[in-house]
Design a binder for these strands. Structure first.
Lengths: 124, 124
DNA sequence: TGGGATACTTACATTGTTGTATGCACTTAC
DNA sequence: GTAAGTGCATACAACAATGTAAGTATCCCA
């Protein structure tokens, strides 16, 4: 079996492509950003990330946990208390996803000015 | 009408969320990374990005062009010659998407070691 | 004279993603 | 006692994303 020294996202079969996909999925990135500074519980994440459904949050968390990027801690209490933190690898990735989203947030006015079409301009 | 000073990706209606989505879409990120260092023609991009279909490449390019991140130049020749470059804003974003993918590529062995499930390990 | 390359577009079918609604077992607050 | 909160799982339906295949006009090469 081949030893891999580094990935190549341009190769469709490379696992790095899948990981990249997970962390840039519709909700994956937002979850990582939300956990960047603090450990959060399920319901807190749900409230923080506007528009996410419980189903999608649960699914996204499982994928990221499966990739070893977040850590799930079940306190075994009733009513349930479970919280989520980033692992070291998760923190690295989160920082980079945040750098991207932060740049977009900061430069949004300029970005909106660039777009001739109204598509991305839809405030509201 | 409200003046926006910066975006907020956590708000579902914020345009920054849509832009983030575009640049982290299945093919959007790869296109931006591919154009990071050089201007490329349609067919070159197609060959570079393993697995993308013509349909998806065309669509992705249009979205990113609509966001003002890439510039399309049609030389008006026959047979057709068209090439794509990043705009200044596109370069900024591309650099950040690349930082993310590059970290993943470089740390792929460690990342694979983290995953207990075989899902992300599927080489081949 | 036939085949491949170029940069797409369009129609159609399939697959994948996402939302909605419901249920669970139990607690605390009103 | 009633409602709301907790962290999910599950079934189902709707919708969005994607792939496949074909077509376009022209050129170059063998």
């Amino acid at each position: 079996m081949p030893n891999i020294s580094r990935g190549d996202v341009f190769a469709s079969a490379c696992p790095s492509r899948q990981i990249l996909q997970h962390v840039t999925s519709r909700w994956g990135g937002l979850v990582l950003i939300a956990l960047r500074e603090e450990t959060l519980r399920f319901a807190q994440l749900r409230r923080r990330i506007d528009g996410i459904s419980e189903r999608m949050l649960a699914q996204t968390l499982q994928v990221l946990e499966g990739d070893g990027l977040i850590l799930r801690t079940d306190h075994g209490e009733v009513p349930p208390r479970v919280d989520y933190t980033l692992t070291p690898a998760g923190r690295e990735i989160s920082a980079r996803v945040f750098a991207l989203s932060d740049w977009i947030e900061e430069n949004l006015p300029e970005l909106l000015a660039l777009t001739p079409n109204a598509a991305a301009q839809t405030v509201q």
